[in-house]
Write a protein that binds this DNA or RNA. Structure first.
Lengths: 192, 192
DNA sequence: GTCTATATGTAGATAGAC
DNA sequence: GTCTATCTACATATAGAC
């Protein structure tokens, strides 16, 4: 670690991360990644055996990134309702890219659902991380069906991302994010 | 019309429709369509100038198909709430493919959001049809914000499809469809 | 209208010099 | 570790015989 090689590896992952999001996994070529990083195509095989391995590395990087984001929500406040609000605000903070390209997690999962099972289950790992964290927040609120509520919250966020992207409608996203926060409040209040 | 050519054209559209759904637009090749229909690759250019033209024809076909589905909801009952239930039941009727491959409309829109603007706006047309129909139903119920509610309903259906597909969870889809119908009932009751 | 053959580009992946 | 050159497969699209 700390070698020039590790640095190149990281740069490949970061470029692939952006490209997989903006153009999709299947529509991203080694040449695209090479153009951004300046690292020649053939060189990639020193760091990764296959393109699928790059995807796995990208998913791992995203998991780490979301783990940090969730940790910052955890430390911000000890009220689970406010933690959920903080996470939703993060979503609202990237309106432009959501409208332009959709949700990076959801769009990847649905794209890979049309490919191999191996790629699909790898991409699902990010969702599992978020669901389990949300479930813990709803548990703390005192809900018996915390896991169902976590799925519902993820589901609503995904629906908002799909519609905002399909209709290119940032105003719809803002309104819906407000509705989502009200919904969380109503759940938290009914238990207090 | 009625010629052999029109028949081949229709068969190409139908095969492309299925393949665009199951594997995505970009991951469907002319060879794939040729394998299913038995029509040789080179022949496609007699019926369509480009692959994008096939997509446009597929979207037109889907619009016709959904127009018929909505018309059957319209004739089934004159109560707008029940019409919306009927449409949701249609969704619930294709659990298996939703879990396997996601929503044909939403997944196409999000995939093409990562491609050209022209393809994206074409794919959006199906959503516009459904939104306008839902909006009319909510208007009949007597809601002032019928269009917002139409977007919300589409949004929830899309979220459910994404999560059911990502987690391969048909039970989640069934539960959520029930929640959706309860939500519609509560909206209809609050206005009666 | 229908088909074969082919043009042209680019994909993922490999070999081997340095 | 890094790079160029290249292999093989397959993509969309075209030309032209029948």
């Amino acid at each position: 670690m700390g070698t020039k090689g590790e640095n190149n590896r990281t740069r490949i992952i970061e470029a692939a991360d952006q490209l997989f999001y903006k153009h999709g996994y299947n529509q991203t070529s080694f040449s695209d990644i090479a153009d951004i990083t300046g690292i020649p195509r053939g060189n990639f095989y020193y760091y990764f055996k296959t393109k699928d391995d790059i995807l796995a590395a990208v998913v791992e990087a995203r998991i780490k990134q979301y783990q940090e984001a969730l940790a910052s929500c955890d430390t911000a406040t000890d009220k689970p309702g406010e933690r959920l609000h903080a996470f939703i605000d993060m979503m609202a903070g990237s309106v432009d890219s959501l409208v332009d390209t959709g949700c990076p997690i959801g769009s990847l999962c649905v794209e890979l659902a049309k490919d191999t099972e191996a790629l699909q289950s790898k991409s699902r790992e990010v969702f599992v991380l978020l669901r389990d964290w949300m479930s813990r927040q709803f548990e703390e609120i005192g809900l018996a069906d915390a896991n169902d509520k976590a799925m519902d919250l993820l589901s609503r966020m995904q629906g908002i991302a799909v519609m905002a992207c399909a209709f290119k409608d940032g105003a719809y996203l803002h309104r819906s994010v407000g509705d989502l926060k009200s919904w969380i409040n109503s759940l938290a209040l009914s238990e207090s």
